[in-house]
Design a protein around this nucleic acid. Structure first.
Lengths: 192, 192
DNA sequence: ATACTAAACGGACTATGGTCCGCTTTCTAT
DNA sequence: ATAGAAAGCGGACCATAGTCCGTTTAGTAT
């Protein structure tokens, strides 16, 4: 896939397929949290070293598993229709972004938590960087003095762990989260 | 210490001292991140089981190590002088709280990260609950519609990992963080 | 076909947080 | 002092992410 891809070896390709299938099966059956790298290697009939060569870490595996739905969500706010996509006022786009994110997280919560878990990965996740940048741009348009830092605050406010725990552990409804996000953005951004 | 404390046994007290001293030494010398429970047990000349009996987990140990400075910070916003303590407008107290928190985190960052690390502990930390509640009260006074949820958003915006990484990894100055926090609160809370 | 090379493989090994449970010590009641 | 009970102790043991390195194998050049 990368540009200089020097011809993926056939055995490598075969093992990648096996691993991805095994991983999806395991996640479907036992949930992402319960997936261990040993179990995955075993189920895919592959050595443990191979798993780590392929994905680098447990978090890397989770990111790979997420990439499809993540791309879809990204396409939504980058190229989709307003108010999520381009064409609406920054404030409305931010509101829509947060709402979309909340529901996206609730659908893929386990995977996202596991993906961000490995310390130092929280912000190295490319998808997170992209979301941050997206918010940064909108905040700048909206006249925020330090959009980069503000986007970081908002990124953490939308942290997967936070959202999942609010809903599943602390019993807050998604709607309530979305309403509060709207209030936050509405007050933060001048009506323009 | 707790009310029904049924007389702490002398050997237990002795070991607690040993462990606390050893832990402080290790943190001072190698940093909190590098502290392993095995090393601690060994240095304190105590069995590993004893370490876990005493503190429950690595996160528990870190919390214990933090408790002094944490209490001090808490006293500041609960009983201190305005604008951090009672007597100032909610908006000003929130601004001061965030600033104080930022500098507190930068002083105790490693410990705080380690304390919150153990998944499911992030919000079970009593100190975090107290901070959350404090902000909730101020936000309610300030006329926020859903102060509980908003306080949660702000709690995550002040996440130790976020603050430490912004400053130490991404090179944002503490001042810049504090300014952005001020902007956030100022816009969020009506000037009242 | 053959030989060569770099990639890929696999599983033993390490590091570390946390658990378990039989043994020891302290305290208390007599 | 003594005995009994409860608290405490310790370190072997477990689970799991991640590393290492000697061996195998897929492509390639001749």
């Amino acid at each position: 896939m990368p540009l200089g891809a020097p011809h993926e070896r056939s055995d490598a390709a075969r093992n990648r397929e096996r691993l991805l299938n095994a991983a999806r099966d395991l996640v479907a059956e036992f949930g992402a949290e319960a997936l261990t790298m040993d179990a995955l290697a075993c189920k895919a009939k592959v050595g443990k070293g191979t798993v780590f060569r392929r994905f680098g870490s447990r978090a890397g595996l989770m990111m790979t598993l997420l990439s499809d739905s993540e791309s879809e969500f990204q396409a939504g706010f980058m190229f989709g229709r307003p108010p999520l996509g381009p064409g609406a006022a920054p404030r409305d786009r931010l509101v829509a972004f947060g709402e979309g994110r909340i529901y996206f997280v609730l659908e893929n919560g386990e995977l996202l938590k596991a993906a961000g878990a490995a310390t130092r990965n929280r912000f190295d996740v490319p998808a997170t960087k992209l979301s941050h940048r997206h918010m940064e741009v909108l905040l700048r348009e909206a006249g925020i003095a330090d959009p980069w830092v503000m986007a970081m605050s908002l990124t953490y406010a939308l942290d997967p762990e936070r959202i999942v725990d609010d809903v599943r552990v602390r019993g807050i409804s998604p709607t309530r989260l979305a309403d509060s996000w709207r209030e936050l953005i509405t007050r933060l951004v001048d009506p323009a």
